[in-house]
Computed example of a mutant assay.
Amino acid sequence: EQLYAQALAQGTNRCATDIAHLAHTLHHTFQHTIHDECPLVLVSLVRAGLPVGVLLQRALADANSSYALSSVHYGVSIIRDRGLDSVALQMILEAYPNSPIVFVDGWTGKGAIYQELAHSLEAFSDPNHPYFASIYHQGKGTIPLLTLADPAGVAWLAASTDDWLIPSGLLNSTVSGLISRSLYTEPQSGLHRSVFYDNLVEA
């Protein structure tokens, strides 16, 4: 907790500025196609993407800002060697069939999760797929991944390529909605699972 407090003291202004810059870019990119009936869909990759997605959603919801944009936010499990929760993604696509999706993560590290995401989205890469435009709205082959930090150089949109200490990267579940790392479930059995850490609510 002390390390988190130190990282927060050092990184608060940078984090806030980076979020504002990302929100401004999203506003500029989607302002002519997004409206209340067709919001931008932010899909945070559980777990590191959740705190970033929450901050970004709050920024876009600020009606007094110059970058306000109609949006909704979800967290979806992604597991190495298992991929994105396909059941969850299908539910989102069906709920917002005409909305563009932007995937949100904290950082790219070595790019492993990006590769996992790209592999999971291959099924939608055919321009004739009914949800192609929802995912490949930046062009065929462009995965719309947004991050605060992109040291791997693979994100579609990132605040920087610096490998800096993002405060939310330190405390895991306590800043990720109090949920555990996601637990894989076969698609035919439903959504991926997680554990809720109610003993950490006070923290």
Rank of each mutant, 00 (worst) to 15 (best):
T108V: 14
F124H: 06
G139M: 09
I113L: 13
A158S: 10
A133R: 13
I113F: 08
V154H: 03
S134G: 09
D105S: 05
A158W: 00
E116W: 06
K110I: 11
A112D: 11
A155V: 07
H119F: 15
H129E: 06
L146C: 01
A123P: 06
L117I: 13
G139R: 12
E122G: 11
P130R: 11
S134H: 12
H137Q: 11
A149W: 00
L145F: 03
D105G: 04
A149L: 02
G139K: 10
A159I: 05
G141P: 01
V154M: 12
H129P: 02
F132C: 02
Q138A: 12
G139E: 06
P144D: 09
A155W: 00
F132Q: 02
K140G: 07
T108C: 09
Y136G: 05
I143R: 02
I143G: 03
W156Y: 04
T108A: 08
L146G: 00
H119P: 01
A133Q: 07
T142P: 02
E122A: 10
S125M: 11
G153M: 13
Y114E: 12
P151T: 07
I135N: 01
A118D: 08
V154S: 04
S160D: 12
N128G: 09
L146S: 00
T142F: 14
W156N: 00
S125K: 13
A149K: 00
L121E: 03
A155G: 14
D150V: 09
G109C: 12
A159G: 07
A159H: 02
D162N: 15
A152S: 10
L117P: 00
G141D: 03
E116L: 06
K140I: 11
D105T: 07
H119Q: 15
Q115G: 03
H137L: 12
Q138V: 07
D162A: 09
L117K: 02
A149I: 00
H129W: 11
K140Y: 11
Y131H: 15
K140L: 15
Y136D: 07
A133V: 06
L145I: 05
G141I: 15
S125P: 02
P130M: 12
Y114N: 13
D105W: 12
L121R: 03
S125T: 15
L117M: 13
N128L: 08
A155C: 14
S134Q: 11
D105E: 14
A158L: 03
Y136C: 09
L145H: 07
F124V: 02
A123D: 08
A133M: 11
S160Q: 09
A155S: 14
P144G: 05
I113S: 11
T108M: 07
Y131Q: 10
F132M: 04
A158M: 04
T142N: 09
F124L: 14
H119T: 14
L148E: 02
D126M: 10
K110T: 11
L157R: 06
N128R: 15
G139Y: 09
G111Y: 10
G106I: 01
T147W: 00
L146I: 04
D150T: 15
W156I: 01
L148F: 04
Y114I: 08
D150Y: 04
T142L: 12
L146H: 00
A123S: 13
L157G: 10
P127V: 06
H129V: 06
A152G: 08
L148Q: 03
W156M: 02
G153V: 07
T142D: 12
S134T: 10
T147L: 02
I143T: 07
L148M: 10
G109E: 12
A133C: 10
I135D: 00
I113K: 11
S125Y: 09
K110M: 14
H129T: 07
